[in-house]
Simulated assay, not measured.
Amino acid sequence: MAGEIPRAQPPPDVPAPGRHPHLLLWRWRRNPLRRRTDRLEGWVALGILLAVLVAAPAAMFAVGDTAYRHYRSTAEHEARTRDHRPAVLVHDAPRHPEPGSDEAKKTRYPVKVRFTGPDGTARTGRADVEPGLSADSTVLVWVDAAGEITEPPLTSEQIRSRTMGWAILAFLGVVLTGLAAHAATALVLRRRNLAGWDAAWAATAPRWSRSP
């Protein structure tokens, strides 16, 4: 349409922003607008990246190894101090609303049971049992050295799962720490950069606005 102002376009020989092959390296390339803080920010970012690449796997291995040793020791202690004992239901267990369903097979209800403790005395406690069991039914429960019903010793799968969880947390902790350090450093340097631009403009502006 006649008289319409065309949209601004970059010169044909200048790559569009974001497509320049060296755009990510601009902090190290010579540029009349680049300040010392720009280059410093680039070196700090590179240093943090290298530190995270080294520290994250090391932290993951160290924390994972420590967690594995801890849970392995805990499992061995539980295996020595816990005993599988028969217990008798004091009353009927609740029935599941959908007997025979997959959900019913996985559901357990806490029911009062009677069992013999490690010291030979009769004890009572609550154990999770299958739905629909009648009173006087016998189930197996785990009992600790104090004669209390407890969880079974940690399994190998539980040890691996918990170890992996701590290892992943350690890895993510190092990565997040690196990101936070980079963000804080960039914020400080950019504020310093803006202060430098303000000072330069304060010195230059009077010459631009001076009346002829």
Results as ranks from 00 to 15, higher is better:
3 G>P: 00
4 E>H: 08
5 I>K: 12
8 A>E: 13
14 V>S: 07
14 V>Q: 11
15 P>C: 03
18 G>P: 02
18 G>K: 06
19 R>P: 01
25 L>W: 11
25 L>I: 05
25 L>M: 08
33 L>I: 06
33 L>Y: 08
33 L>P: 00
37 T>A: 13
40 L>Q: 05
40 L>D: 04
49 L>S: 11
50 L>I: 11
51 A>W: 14
57 P>Q: 12
57 P>Y: 12
58 A>E: 07
61 F>A: 12
66 T>N: 11
66 T>S: 13
66 T>V: 07
66 T>R: 13
69 R>N: 12
71 Y>M: 03
71 Y>P: 00
72 R>W: 09
73 S>I: 03
74 T>R: 09
74 T>N: 10
75 A>P: 01
77 H>W: 10
79 A>L: 07
80 R>K: 14
80 R>Q: 13
81 T>D: 09
87 A>M: 01
88 V>T: 15
91 H>M: 09
93 A>V: 00
93 A>K: 00
94 P>C: 12
95 R>I: 09
99 P>H: 01
101 S>Y: 03
105 K>G: 12
107 T>N: 05
109 Y>W: 09
110 P>D: 03
112 K>F: 03
115 F>M: 00
116 T>V: 14
117 G>T: 04
118 P>Y: 06
121 T>E: 09
126 R>G: 06
127 A>H: 00
131 P>R: 06
131 P>H: 07
131 P>A: 08
131 P>I: 04
132 G>I: 00
132 G>K: 00
134 S>E: 15
135 A>G: 00
142 W>E: 04
143 V>W: 00
144 D>Y: 05
147 G>T: 07
148 E>R: 14
153 P>H: 05
160 R>E: 15
161 S>A: 15
163 T>F: 01
165 G>K: 08
168 I>L: 14
169 L>D: 10
174 V>C: 07
176 L>S: 07
178 G>R: 03
179 L>P: 02
179 L>Y: 06
180 A>E: 10
180 A>Q: 10
181 A>N: 08
182 H>P: 05
182 H>E: 15
183 A>G: 12
186 A>L: 09
188 V>W: 08
189 L>G: 02
191 R>L: 13
192 R>I: 02
193 N>H: 12
194 L>C: 03
195 A>H: 09
196 G>H: 04
196 G>A: 09
199 A>V: 09
200 A>W: 07
201 W>I: 03
207 R>I: 04
210 R>N: 11
212 P>Q: 09
212 P>Y: 04
